[in-house]
Measured scan of single mutants.
Amino acid sequence: VPQRAWTVEQLRSEQLPKKDIIKFLQEHGSDSFLAEHKLLGNIKNVAKTANKDHLVTAYNHLFETKRFK
């Protein structure tokens, strides 16, 4: 089981690129989880459509539901 890579403050910070969060989610989330949160596909394309709040919610949801690969 992966550990949380970032704190809530870090997740919301401008310093953390959306692409980093997407990469983490794609590496650790199950396909059904990723599909549900519309996070499947090319990281660049996902970054265009997903806002930061959406990614933070998905990140927290992944750990709450433990839907890891």
Rank of each mutant, 00 (worst) to 15 (best):
D20I: 11
D53S: 09
P17N: 09
A5N: 15
Y59M: 03
A58G: 02
I21E: 01
K18G: 09
H61Q: 13
N60R: 07
F68W: 06
T49H: 13
K48L: 15
K18P: 08
D53N: 10
V1A: 12
G41W: 03
A5W: 12
H37F: 15
K19A: 14
V1P: 13
F24G: 00
F33N: 00
V46E: 03
F68I: 04
F68L: 02
K52I: 05
K19Y: 14
T57C: 12
A47I: 14
T7R: 02
Q15H: 10
L34K: 04
Q15V: 07
A47P: 02
H28S: 08
K69R: 14
K52A: 05
K23V: 09
S30W: 03
K69Y: 06
F63K: 02
S13D: 13
S32L: 08
D31I: 14
K66A: 10
T65G: 11
A47T: 12
T7G: 05
K19S: 14
E36I: 08
H61V: 12
K38L: 09
S32W: 07
T7H: 04
P2Q: 05
T7I: 03
T65N: 11
A58V: 06
Q26A: 04
V56G: 03
Q3W: 04
D20S: 09
R4N: 09
K48V: 11
T49G: 10
Q3I: 13
A50M: 12
W6Y: 05
I43S: 07
N42E: 15
A50Q: 09
A35W: 12
L34A: 02
K38N: 11
I22Y: 03
G29W: 01
V8A: 11
K44H: 15
H61I: 11
Q26L: 09
R67E: 14
D20T: 14
N45M: 13
A35T: 10
H37G: 02
V1N: 12
L34I: 07
K52N: 05
T57H: 14
F33V: 00
A35C: 13
K19C: 13
T57A: 12
T7W: 04
Q26T: 05
K44C: 15
E64M: 09
A47M: 10
R67W: 06
F63P: 00
R4M: 06
Q3C: 14
A5C: 15
S32H: 07
D53I: 06
T65S: 13
A47H: 08
A35D: 10
A50P: 03
S30D: 11
L55I: 08
L55W: 03
E64P: 01
L62M: 08
T7N: 07
T57P: 03
G29Y: 01
K52Y: 12
N51C: 08
V56M: 05
L62C: 02
L62P: 01
R67Q: 13
K18N: 10
L40A: 11
R4G: 08
E64V: 09
Y59D: 00
K48P: 05
K48S: 12
